[in-house]
């Protein structure tokens, strides 16, 4: 898994690439912790290049969502393919998370 971090005005954009699985979820958690330490409050996770997410990946995303919420921040996601979107729908996490179809839509009015 690769993570590229950019800044678009006041939004931190994390472009994720590859699989989010049991092996690299701890690494992703560390990246999220660093973002929270910087006090970045608007975080967009771009899933365009993500090919796979397992339940450990979902757990890491829920943790990030909750930690950001605690400091008054907000997490948004975009660019999921149908297979991954289905995992969020089955687990009803699409109702908990703020998921947009495209990066442009996600950035708008963030």
């Amino acid at each position: 898994m690769k993570v590229k971090e950019d800044r678009l005005s006041d939004v931190t954009v994390c472009s994720l690439e590859g699989e989010i699985n049991i092996n690299n979820s701890p690494e992703l958690r560390k990246i999220f912790e660093a973002i929270i330490k910087k006090n970045d409050k608007k975080v967009l996770l771009d899933f365009t290049q993500v090919s796979y997410v397992d339940s450990s990946g979902l757990a890491t995303l829920i943790e990030m969502f909750q930690r950001l919420k605690k400091i008054g921040g907000h997490m948004r996601m975009c660019g999921m393919n149908e297979k991954i979107r289905n995992i969020f729908e089955i687990t009803k996490l699409h109702k908990l998370f703020d998921i947009c179809d495209t990066k442009d839509t996600a950035i708008k009015d963030f």
């Binding site: 089955i90 009803k92 109702k95 908990l96």
Partner: peptide, 17 residues
């Protein structure tokens, strides 16, 4: 893990999936 009282739980989605 999809009930209002469990949806926020970090783990416990493997068997459900």
């Amino acid at each position: 893990p999809i009930r209002p009282d469990t949806i926020h739980k970090v783990s416990g989605r493997g068997i459900f999936l």
